[in-house]
Amino acid sequence: MRIAFATEENRGLNSVVSSRFGRARYFIIVDYEGGEVKSYRVEVNPGSEARSGAGIKAVQKLINEGVNVAVAGSFGPNAMTALGEMGIRHVGMSGITVEEALNRLKNQL
């Protein structure tokens, strides 16, 4: 299971989940298996630099990274549609660290 957390900071699993998806600065992409973090990496979200169409660029990034679940506070109309079409689950959560979010998520995965 590969989960992408939208964040504004690059502090690994201690980064706080952003209130927004498409224009978040980073994605912390976590490989999560059997209730454990196997590995994670930090990727710059190309949507954060986009003048428009940020949501689509962000989803394209997650598709390329093979992500199964996206976590952020809110998702824009284009992002939501694209995630839905690609079968990437979206989970609304923000203001807590990636680690805390993983703890809350683990029973639902």
């Binding site: 689509i56 390329n64 284009n78 694209a82």
Partner: peptide, 13 residues
Amino acid sequence: KPEPYRPIIIKPE
């Protein structure tokens, strides 16, 4: 319930 959305299709690059 959220507003229904129209489909957008993106394929992996």
